[in-house]
Design a protein around this nucleic acid. Structure first.
Length: 958
RNA sequence: GGGCAGGUGGUGGAAUUGGUAUACACGCUAGUCUUAGGAACUAGUGCUUCGGCUUGAGGGUUCGAGUCCCUCCCUGCCCACCA
């Protein structure tokens, strides 16, 4: 090969990057069908990019380039999420203004990205810190405020003393500040809050919109975060007062087991009834301790539950009217539900632990019940009459053989243990002995004991043709010796007695009561509190109802009596939206002594972030903006009197809540997005980013989007249709890339050494896109070698030449697979298919121009620079990215012969080569006569031959 | 403790209506060539006691299982006293 024709990416790549920018190759917005592919825009941090960052960007770029060649109007933008603590922290540390730092960092990021060759439309670049942008962030806030969805609150919130700002719940990680890892304390603070819980149900239920193609894991994380639970609020009135304690419970069916009530240390009852509390100083001491604990300490799982009895206070159980004690305990969270719970030790593990420690009564009011359901002849028929019977189920164990006695019925499939109906006045032991003797004949059994746990089953009694509700008692025996009495003919004909080993017993039974008997005997019932649903006992008129029925009926009763109501609670809280920091969007409100809180008029937006001498945060609970009097002091827009600006700023997540809308119409000065273009471009077809945004950005953005939908600003209920989460690129040592470990690999160096195309190809070839994989520069060398191979192929290109059928087949398969795989983010297999095609072409002496150009188009999304160069060398004047994507022609694939494996008893013993679609009989003959197969058939009888057309022949011999 | 994802050669990984497990690439071995480079090319590369054995372990269904069913083990991520 001559010198001039070497593959030199450093010569090719900058040339085409400039060409595309200059010619606006990727601004084909007039095309009819749109395709919006979006990356999560980055923080322009001071550290610059490492090789992990561009992985997602390359993926969207590959997709964008393919869609462009496929004729779509592709929108593939990029911007900067530059407000917020990290940018500010960086600026403080390096003693420069955040604005300057952000500008510098954006410069670094952009130059790093430019080298990789993205199709980003920089005319649509967005920067959340640009006043022209945050004008609209402020505008949205005002609409939220006008709609009553932004409100001022003085509740205690999470305060990070190191970052010196309030934080939202979403900003905590294991109870610590997500930014700096400091413990977070509770601090009462004036703050602005967005009523996100008003959208909780829509945020939850719209996750099930069929078109929302998100990973199950992210959907589940959002569901858990929203944490919807249905239950009831129940009133416990305080004895001798007008006071009430309202508790929230999802298990109102267990209320007859409630033996005390617990309130959170912050609960107002303590202050209101202080004079009645006889041990007030002790209670106050406990509250003080609780207050000083961090959220983390309070919720530590290993921690033993503590609490203090409120002496002198009692509450009335709404159903039984008995008086119950009240405890204050910090395992009850003030911020969830009503800050008070009912203690039902028998059916809640936390309550059980607490009750054991403080010697509180543990009353069982729910018993497990197994209802036979489904398509079987003993399934319970809810419509039919039910007969209730008290029974005993017997576990009889033979220690010598480690076996249990079981009974197997003959008339139908039923494997169980000895059981019987309990007669009037009979003890469990007597009844059990009688049944063992009658049903099995064993005489010498030793009584071991009974269980105080009862269980229930509901089924259709096949013998008696009636629904049966069986209440099971359990009795346990051991076999002393084998002595047996003769069983009656009747009993013998009905069932047989089988001893089953302990090891195998678990899966042996077909009826629940037998399983229970054995489990209870083996003491597998270790759980102290029965937390599942079941059947009610000891619950007055509600006894015998199922948990589900009881919940309904009890709530109806409570509502009638005015003692409670149905209630839905969420784990998700309203969004604490103000930060006491400088580097964020100013909240566009004004406080006037006369008019209260007043909106900044829309025509005065944006409220510009003022220049300030010191933007360092402080402990005052106000932002540094509060010190700039000439900015703070304004006249009230309504009455004109002296007033003050709101000095809190918005959290870093504000700008990213709607940025995808601004890309569509970035320069619109009259609306955040024009209605026409919004309709054309939304929703985002594919959104790519990391999983770390599952419960913040992705939840916040969905919330704002739904609000904007309600306001008529956007036309879709969800912003992002398909969401793909890339896996990390780890360092070669398997750890995360981090300055701390000194294992960071810089993309600039890799691109410089191997070229952008090899780099792009490698990142896509490493493995499944969503998986985390360690970096390996040797692999990058491999993709570079592949590109060299493609480069050399150009020498074999001939204008008119016959193309072998093998090449045609390979090419067609590649056309089909590359497009499918890119669409599904299976880039690694798309590339391996291209490699196989290139390996095939390499073996040919000549390659037709058509074949080669098809290869270039298929490869172009991954290696745009080299393919564009070769495309030009093939004589094209226009960009490859304005060419058309090859169509898949299945009819061109002609497979003359196929190879079928021949299996004998499941093992491959030979193969036959036949014309495609040869009939079964012929294939069968050929397989049986095959030289390699014959020896295995010698002296054996061929029982069966299965021929799967064009795939396999399976011979069964004996 | 709960949820989700996953476990296949020396390595990253392929394989979907169940049909020849290990495609593609890296690495390694031997050779060819050489203006001596992380080059290119050729051949080989799961294990093996050469009978066979192999997809975390064990069982099941099937002519046939990485793929379906049951039991168990392990890893990663997320959530975690939410009543």
């Amino acid at each position: 090969m001559n010198e001039k024709n070497l593959y030199q990416p450093d010569m090719i790549e900058p040339k085409w990057q400039a060409y595309w920018e200059e010619h606006g190759t990727f601004r084909q917005y007039d095309r009819e069908e749109k395709y919006y592919v979006l990356d999560m825009f980055p923080y322009p941090s001071g550290a610059g990019l490492h090789v992990g960052h561009p992985k997602g960007y390359i993926a969207t770029d590959v997709l964008a380039r393919m869609k462009q060649i496929q004729g779509k109007a592709v929108l593939h933008p990029m911007g900067w999420d530059a407000f917020g603590l990290p940018a500010e922290q960086y600026a403080i540390k390096n003693k420069i203004h955040p604005r300057i730092a952000v500008e510098e960092n954006i410069g670094t990021f952009k130059s790093q990205l430019a080298k990789i060759g993205f199709t980003y439309d920089w005319e649509r670049e967005i920067n959340t810190t640009d006043p022209k942008y945050y004008k609209w962030t402020q505008w949205i806030f005002l609409q939220l405020w006008k709609a009553g969805l932004a409100y001022e609150s003085h509740e205690p919130i999470n305060w990070c003393s190191s970052c010196k700002t309030g934080l939202a719940n979403e900003d905590l990680e294991q109870g610590k500040c997500e930014r700096c890892g400091s413990e977070v304390e509770k601090r009462p603070l004036r703050q602005w809050v967005l009523a996100m819980t008003k959208y909780a149900d829509r945020l939850l239920y719209d996750l099930d919109t069929p078109l929302l193609e998100w990973s199950p894991s992210i959907k589940e994380q959002q569901r858990n975060w929203i944490g919807r639970s249905e239950g009831a609020e129940v009133v416990f009135s305080v004895v001798d007062t007008e006071e009430q304690v309202r508790v929230f419970t999802t298990r109102v069916d267990t209320i007859f087991g409630c033996s005390y009530v617990v309130i959170a240390p912050e609960h107002p009852l303590i202050q209101k009834q202080a004079e009645k509390i006889q041990n007030l100083s002790l209670v106050e001491k406990y509250r003080e301790q609780a207050k000083n604990k961090t959220e983390l300490e309070r919720t530590e799982l290993s921690k033993e539950k503590t609490g203090v009895l409120l002496e002198g206070i009692q509450v009335v159980h709404p159903f039984t009217n008995t008086h119950l004690p009240v405890y204050v305990a910090d395992y009850v969270l003030a911020t969830y539900g009503t800050g008070a719970v009912m203690g039902v030790p028998a059916h809640d593990e936390r309550d059980y632990e607490f009750a054991e420690k403080y010697n509180l009564p543990i009353t069982t009011v729910i018993e497990e019940c197994v209802v036979t359901e489904g398509d079987r002849d003993d399934a319970y028929q809810p419509a039919e009459e039910t007969v209730t019977r008290e029974n005993v189920a017997i576990a009889l164990y033979n220690p010598k053989t480690e076996s249990f006695l079981t009974i197997s019925w003959k008339a139908f499939v039923m494997k169980g243990v000895v059981t019987g109906g309990l007669e009037e006045g009979e003890t469990l032991e007597d009844c059990a002995r009688r049944e063992i003797l009658e049903e099995t004949g064993y005489k010498n059994v030793r009584f071991v004991g009974t269980s105080d746990i009862k269980k229930h089953t509901k089924f259709f009694h096949r013998g008696k043709k009636v629904n049966r509700h069986a209440i099971w008692n359990f009795a346990f025996f051991e076999l002393v010796d084998e002595a047996r009495e003769e069983m009656s003919i009747e009993d013998q004909s009905q069932h047989e007695v089988v001893w089953v080993e302990k090891k195998k017993i678990k899966d042996y039974f077909t009826v629940a009561e037998a399983r229970f008997a054995v489990e209870l005997f083996l003491a597998h019932e270790t759980k102290k509190a029965l937390t599942g649903d079941g059947i009610l006992v000891n619950s007055g008129e509600f006894s015998e109802l199922s948990s589900v029925e009881a919940r309904e009926k009890m709530i109806v009763w409570l509502e009638q009596e005015g003692l409670g109501q149905k209630k839905v609670n969420y784990k998700m809280r309203d969004w604490t939206f103000s930060r006491q920091r400088y580097w964020g969007e100013p909240i566009p409100l004004i406080h006037c002594a006369d008019c209260g809180v007043v909106a900044v008029p829309e025509n005065e937006l944006p409220v510009m972030l003022p220049e300030v001498e010191s933007y360092e945060p402080n402990d005052s609970g106000e932002s540094p903006l509060a010190n700039i009097l000439e900015w703070v002091n304004v006249s009230c827009p309504e009455c004109g009197k002296e007033a003050k600006r709101e000095t809190n700023t918005m959290p870093q997540w504000a700008g990213s809540c709607w940025y995808y809308l601004r890309y569509i119409d970035p320069t619109n000065s009259t609306a955040l997005v024009g209605k026409e273009v919004e309709k054309k471009m939304m929703p985002v077809d594919v959104y790519v980013g990391g999983t770390e945004h599952a419960t913040r950005h992705l939840l916040y953005a969905r919330f704002w989007h739904k609000f904007l939908y309600d306001q008529g600003v956007v036309s879709t209920i969800e912003p992002f249709m398909k969401l793909v989460n890339q896996g990390l690129i780890l360092a070669s040592d398997g750890r995360k890339m981090s300055k701390r470990w000194g294992n960071v690999i810089n993309p600039d160096e890799m691109v410089g050494e191997f070229g952008a195309d090899a780099f792009r190809l490698y990142e896509m070839f490493m493995g499944p896109f969503t998986q985390s994989i360690a970096w390996n520069t040797d692999g990058l060398m491999g993709t570079r070698r592949f590109l060299e191979k493609v480069w050399r192929l150009q020498e074999k290109v001939v204008n008119n030449t016959d193309t072998s059928q093998q090449v045609v087949n390979s090419l067609q398969m590649t056309i089909k697979k590359v497009a499918l795989d890119i669409e599904e983010f299976k880039f690694n297999t798309a590339i391996s298919t291209l490699m196989i095609l290139v390996n095939t072409l390499e073996k040919e002496t000549e390659v037709s121009r058509e074949t080669f150009e098809t290869l270039l188009v298929l490869l172009a999304p991954f290696a745009p620079h080299m393919t564009e160069e070769l495309w030009q060398k093939m004589g094209h004047k226009e960009s490859l990215f304005l060419a058309t994507w090859p169509e898949f022609h299945p009819e061109k694939i002609i497979e003359g012969e196929v190879t079928l494996a021949v299996q004998i008893n499941g093992r491959v013993r030979g193969e036959v080569v036949v014309a495609k679609d040869t009939d079964e009989a012929t294939v069968r003959e050929m397989a049986l006569k095959n030289e390699k197969v014959k020896p295995y058939l010698e002296g054996k009888e061929v029982k069966k031959v299965i021929v799967v057309a064009n795939k396999i022949v399976s011979i069964v011999v004996a």
